[in-house]
Design a protein around this nucleic acid. Structure first.
Length: 409
DNA sequence: GACGGGAATC
């Protein structure tokens, strides 16, 4: 490590690389090399102890520095203040600030921002807000920045006070500060938590007007909130906007939205096509479609009497290695029979990938053969079922409607 | 010379 500045550089590099343990080993070896730690060495050491979350050790070193007039810098103090705040140990954080002031080291806005975040974290939002007010009023050299506003806004949003958060945003804008994507995302989150997710569209508009590009967190927060509060049409709108902005929607969220769309389309039929379009888009872009989502879209197509498409996707589903729920299979087969497409229904039944069809599925086919008076065919299917160990309730009937198979007990 | 924001997970 050569000289002291070389050792200090090494320690700093290790701290940046998040290797505090190695750094502490290096520190221990310094005396053997005849190196006497200086203020910079101790400062880096404090950073390392903070990284390790050993804040007592960090505090001890800081006290040692103060006692020996190694004057820690604002950054060093702030590092420790931040570490205490992140753990919610506000009293200790304030004690550090007390030491700072005693030795004549003025806190910066970053120091205050750490305190504000900490106060919000432990639920003392009111004090955080007061601290913002104090900074505005009392200090001459320090002014709140966008981090300060964002922190207090987040505090308000976390306790369901989004209107006050919005007021703060307006205030920041008036003060000439430039909110960034995090500031806006804080509001999305607040609105969505409070059950006012549609207000998120206003935020979206506002940020775009102010040349702040929404990121994926903006959209994910918004869409999730809309889904949570049952605003399915709006969620679809946000989804389209997200895709339009060039973002990929996560598979899980796409599947959730798809299922929600399917479900609501059973009552609000105009959404049926939106659901199917979305499904097709997911399929074509290689988005993994859950087994349950397949079930939903198949049922949706059945509800819309689009049985060919339902069948097609059921077959596609099997290609993807999923087996359809027997209840949806029975529903689709029944619809096919109604349309006179018994051959098609039969070929599905014979599909090996299907595994073991349930008795309800066999019932549908046997019933149809009975209806057409095709007794022999009905018997064949019945036999197939028995071979699979399934006993359908429907029995083959002859032309006079007599049951020709005795029920087994 | 170093120190400060945000989301969800069927």
């Amino acid at each position: 490590m050569g000289n002291l500045s070389g050792a200090n550089d090494l320690l700093a590099a290790l701290a940046v690389a998040r290797e505090p343990d190695v750094a502490l080993q290096v520190f221990d070896e310094m005396p053997a090399h005849g190196l006497v730690p200086d203020a910079w060495t101790f400062s880096t050491l404090i950073v390392c102890h903070c990284l390790k979350n050993s804040l007592d050790d960090a505090t001890r070193i800081l006290d040692f520095m103060v006692e020996n007039e190694l004057s820690p810098s604002v950054a060093t103090f702030t590092t420790l203040v931040n570490s205490f705040c992140r753990k919610g140990e506000m009293q200790k954080a304030f004690e550090v600030v007390g030491v700072m002031k005693k030795v004549g080291c003025e806190p910066t806005i970053q120091t205050y921002n750490c305190l504000i975040k900490g106060l919000c974290y432990v639920g003392r939002v009111e004090e955080a807000y007061e601290m913002l007010g104090k900074i505005k009023k009392e200090s001459v050299s320090i002014e709140p920045d966008i981090y300060t506003y964002t922190a207090v806004m987040d505090g308000f949003c976390k306790v369901g006070r989004s209107p006050e958060a919005k007021e703060l945003l307006d205030e920041a804008l008036e003060a000439g500060l430039v909110p960034n994507v995090v500031t806006y995302n804080t509001l999305f989150n607040g609105y969505c938590k409070e059950g006012k997710p549609v207000k998120g569209f206003g935020v979206l508009k506002l940020m775009k007007e102010r040349d702040c590009t929404p990121d994926r967190i903006s959209y994910i927060t918004l869409i999730h909130g809309l889904l949570k509060w049952g605003k399915i049409r709006a969620a679809l709108r946000a989804y389209k906007e997200m895709v339009g902005d060039g973002f990929e929607v996560e598979e899980r969220m796409s599947n959730t939205l798809l299922r929600a769309l399917c479900k609501i389309s059973w009552k609000e039929r105009d959404l049926l096509d939106d659901a199917y379009q979305m499904f097709k888009k997911m399929r074509s872009t290689g988005c993994a479609i859950d087994e349950s989502s397949y079930g939903f879209i198949i049922q949706t197509l059945s509800v819309g009497n689009r049985n060919e498409e339902a069948l097609f996707n059921m077959e596609h589903m099997m290609t993807m290695g999923h087996s359809p729920k027997m209840i949806s299979l029975a529903r689709v087969l029944r619809a096919l029979c109604r349309e006179g497409k018994l051959g098609k229904a039969l070929s599905v039944l014979m599909d090996e990938r299907l595994g073991h069809p349930s008795k309800e599925v066999y019932n549908v086919i046997i019933n149809e053969f009975n209806r057409q008076g095709r007794w022999l065919c009905a018997c064949n299917v019945y036999g197939m079922a028995l071979k699979q160990g399934v006993v359908p309730e429907k029995k083959p009937e002859d032309a006079k409607g007599r049951v020709s198979v005795k029920s087994r007990q």
